[in-house]
Each structure stands twice: as structure tokens, then as C-alpha cells.
Design a binder for these strands. Structure first.
Length: 424
RNA sequence: GGAGAGAUGCCUGAGAGGCCGAAAGGACAUGUUUGCUAAACAUGCGUACGGGUAACCGUACCGAGGGUUCGAAUCCCUCUUUCUCCGCCA
């Protein structure tokens, strides 16, 4: 959520940036917010004045009662009864205006960084770099969903029996590969100074609002209605919410956390080749990195996070490319996002495996995650996060890219974790 | 799941209808002093919104939300949560 004070003081800048995001009717929405804000200020002043008067009278009544002047006190009481009426009115009005502002404010996306490319669709994303060699596969090469069956690594049908489509069962070396990747990713992250945390994978609605999944993506999360809890779509939600309603010391920054969790996504509306095999699942594993930083450092931090994720792909020897997302393809809360995509050699397409974003104050404003600066002033910190990495598509391209006539080669860095270097 | 006791500022903790945005101590910050570590003393030290060039002023907040009252941290109700005991259980 954008800060009202920021919108008020930087209207032109906000409009310019929202335009990058193709936010419809930006000007009229912002104007509505600002005029509501004026109404809010007026209502508050009126409400405060009435309350001040009532407080004063109450104090006088107290004095009179103490000195035994009962009758005078009674007269004043009548007066306060009147005040109470208008107090109620103004409070009501204030509450309504605030609710209205809030309602609109949560529908306004974050203001993109000025370097974000203009555009509407994934085709408009800017390719920042491409790394690695696209492998030439042998003549009988097949996509990963055939490899997983051939070598008995993943049973999709069994998952359908147990739960439904998109909930695969990993078996044998397939299961071990999952565990290996998780441990490898966590080890790399902790060696870079990220503190590993293991958060709950169900969260309450407050947490959903804190990171912006609610109300924006209500339908994309699994919801346990009996207890009103949500299954997390990413570890970003619980990990970032650790810092909800927290005032940090400047010396605490940057906060670097990483964590492995399963992630749950309803993916309502997806279909076809997009969801084949491991391409899109309802439950998948991911290691996430999160940083809370000083505002001046957040873009520098974004680059180091991107480089970290790149280094993982390089070590896994997967060809990848980095995209700087255009305004239209960026998520609701992000100010700047890099997507990293690996090449899936049998499907002959790029698969997104990581998304690294700077949210600036968009999340921390809702979270009320602040820090005290050198002057003792509290201000909002910046939050960032990135996948490092999401497993299924990594597995898909590992299997496809490394397949030979006899089986699948495991990248060197993983062998200590898998305990085998070949699946045959 | 049942019974009881709690929830106060960064922490400990007093306050039991008006004198309470809240004692006291600790922590922290600044200053003075002593040769360093440190100690002593003094001062300061919550958040948000609104008004004001500013000093400052107003309002709200004592787990959350309602209620009673002229007036609520304090009384009542609901919820959340913590602790103790019992039950169940990896």
C-alpha cells in the first residue's frame, strides 16, 4: 500500500510512475484519494475539537463533584450529553472516510522504479542477460514428464488419487533430489549470511494483508475456513510478517532471512501446456530469501540478491536468462522485479524459476515495519524478496537438459547432497 | 477439551473510576566529572493522526473489539493470547 503522505507530497511523480504500470484512471483515482484525504482532515479536526471540549467539561464536572457543587455539575452534564451526539456523528464520518480511503488505496499498485521498462505483456520484458550454453539433446530426448515416469521419480497419477491434479508424489531418487536441492539452496543462502527460519505454513488474515496477498489475491490461496487460516503461497508471507509491527534499530539492518517451505497455490484458471508435468503445481517446494533494508541500500541489495540467485543457476550448470519485468508484467506490490528463467531443453522454452523484487515501502507500510534512524526518527524500511529457488522447474530442466541415452546426469554440486551422480 | 490466574511503554513492574500517556527501576541517548575499562550525577527517552514557521497545542492508543458512565488502564461483555492444574497426544 502506498503512503498517503507520499501521494500527497509527490502527486506528479506518483502519476508518472503509475503510468509505467498501465494503472487505469490513475489521475482520477489519485484525485479521489486526495480529496477524500482533505475531507478526512476536516472531519478529524471537527471530531478532535468536540472531544477536547467534552474532555474539558468532564474535568470540570469532576472538580465540582469533589467540592460538593452538585447542581452546577448536573447542568454541565446536560451539556456533555449534547456534545456526545455530535461526537458520535463526527467519529462516524471520520471512520467512513478512512474506510473509503483504505478501500481505494489497497487497489493502487506500487509505483514502479523509473527504470522499469514500459509494456503490457511478457514480450515487453527486457532481457538483461543470457548465460550458459543451450544443450543439444540426443535424438530420442523426451520432456521431463516422460523422464519422471521412465525412471520412476515422480508419480503424478498417484497424486491425483491422494489429492488431485498438481499434487505429485516424489519417489526414490526423485524424492531424494528434492531434499538435496532444498539443502543445497539453504546451505548456499546461510553461507551468504541469511538466517534460516522455519515458519508456519498456515497464516492468519493479518499476515495475508501484511504482504499484500489479501485482498488482491484472495482466490489464489487455499483457505481453511473453520479456523480462518490460509496456506501460504510463498514463504515470503510468514517470513516478512515476522517484522510486522516492529520498530528496528538501524544497526539491525539489513535483516537477511531465508527459509524453506512448501508453497500452495490454487492457480485458478491455468490450463494446457503451461501446467503439464512440473510446470505448474498446486503444491511445490521453494527456498525463499527475504531482506529488510535501509531505504538507501535497497537497490544495491536487489542486485546482490539477483547475483546470488544467478550463482545458484550457474553452479547447477543450467542455462538461464534474466528479465527485467515491464510495468504490465510486474506484480502488484513490486517496484522493480527481475525474473530468472532456465532453459528447458526438451520443451524448448524458458521456465521462470525465480522472481526477485524490491517492494520499497509498499509492504512495510502495511506491515508497519520501521526503524529508528540516526536522528531517532522512525521511518519505514524497505523489503525485498526472491526465490532461491523454486524446485519444480529446476527439476524439470535438470532432468531434460542432462538426459543421455542411458539416464540423467546430476550436476557436481548436488552429488554430495544426493549421494548419487546418475539416474539410470 | 475442562478449571483457574494473567495481558500496562524497549524490558521489569506499580496503578483498582477524575489528580494517569501512565509511578519506580533497568536499558538506551546526551552532558558533567574522575587517568583507561567503568562508576557517580544531571537531563532526555512511546506511536499515529491533525493544527502551527516554530516553541508547542489537540485527539486517539494500557492485548483486540463492543458496552456502562459527564468521565474508563481501572467496571461489564465477546474474542485473541500467555501461564498453572487436569485430560488427550507426536
Amino acid at each position: 500500500m502506498l503512503q498517503l503522505s507520499y501521494i500527497r507530497e509527490n502527486k506528479e511523480d506518483v502519476l508518472k510512475r503509475l503510468d509505467i504500470k498501465n494503472f487505469k484512471d490513475a489521475e482520477s483515482v489519485i484525485n479521489t484519494i486526495l480529496s477524500l484525504d482533505d475531507k478526512r482532515k476536516l472531519a478529524q479536526r471537527q471530531a478532535d475539537d468536540v472531544k477536547a471540549e467534552a474532555n474539558g467539561l468532564a474535568k470540570q464536572i469532576g472538580e465540582l463533584m469533589k467540592t460538593g457543587k452538585k447542581e452546577e455539575a448536573e447542568t454541565l452534564k446536560l451539556k456533555t450529553t449534547e456534545l456526545k451526539q455530535s461526537e458520535k456523528q463526527f467519529d462516524e464520518e471520520l471512520k467512513n472516510i478512512e474506510a473509503e480511503i483504505q478501500k481505494i488505496l489497497v487497489t493502487v499498485p506500487n509505483t514502479p522504479n523509473l527504470t522499469v521498462p514500459r509494456g503490457k505483456t511478457p514480450e515487453d520484458n527486457e532481457v538483461v542477460n543470457e548465460h550458459g550454453v543451450i544443450p543439444e539433446l540426443h535424438a530420442n530426448a523426451v520432456p521431463h514428464w516422460e523422464l519422471t515416469t521412465k525412471f520412476d521419480l515422480i508419480d503424478f497419477e498417484l497424486g491425483v488419487k491422494l489429492t488431485g491434479a498438481g499434487f505429485p508424489v516424489y519417489k526414490g531418487k526423485g524424492a531424494r533430489l528434492q531434499r538435496a536441492l532444498i539443502n543445497y539452496f539453504l546451505d548456499k543462502a546461510t553461507s551468504k549470511g541469511y538466517l534460516e527460519v522455519q515458519p508456519p505454513i498456515l497464516v492468519n488474515a493479518d499476515s495475508g494483508y501484511g504482504t499484500g496477498q489479501l485482498p488482491d489475491k484472495e482466490g489464489q490461496m487455499y483457505h481453511c475456513q473453520v479456523d480462518d487460516l490460509y496456506l501460504i503461497p510463498t514463504a515470503e508471507v510468514p517470513i516478512t510478517n515476522i517484522y510486522r509491527d516492529v520498530i528496528l534499530k538501524e544497526s539491525d539492518l539489513p535483516i537477511k532471512n531465508c527459509g524453506y517451505t512448501p508453497c500452495f497455490r490454487r492457480e485458478a484458471g491455468s490450463y494446457g501446456k503451461d501446467v503439464r508435468g512440473l510446470n505448474r503445481l498446486h503444491q511445490f517446494d521453494k527456498v525463499e530469501i527475504v531482506q529488510i533494508t535501509n531505504p538507501e541500500k535497497s537497490y544495491e541489495t536487489l542486485e546482490t540478491m539477483r547475483e546470488f540467485v544467478s550463482s545458484l543457476l550457474q553452479e547447477l550448470e543450467l542455462p538461464y536468462r534474466t528479465l527485467k519485468l515491464c510495468g504490465g508484467d510486474m506484480s502488484f506490490g513490486s517496484a522493480l522485479t527481475y525474473d530468472l528463467e532456465v532453459w528447458s531443453a526438451a520443451q524448448k522454452r524458458w521456465l521462470e524459476v525465480s522472481s526477485v523484487s524490491n517492494f520499497e515501502t509498499f509492504q512495510t507500510n502495511r506491515l508497519k515495519c520501521r526503524y529508528k534512524d540516526a536522528n531517532g526518527k522512525t521511518q519505514l524500511a524497505h523489503s525485498l524478496n526472491g526465490s532461491a529457488l523454486a524446485l519444480p522447474r529446476i527439476v524439470a530442466s535438470l532432468l531434460e537438459n542432462n538426459q543421455t541415452e542411458n539416464g540423467i546426469k546430476i550436476p557436481k554440486v548436488l552429488v554430495p547432497y544426493t549421494g548419487f551422480d546418475f539416474i539410470g
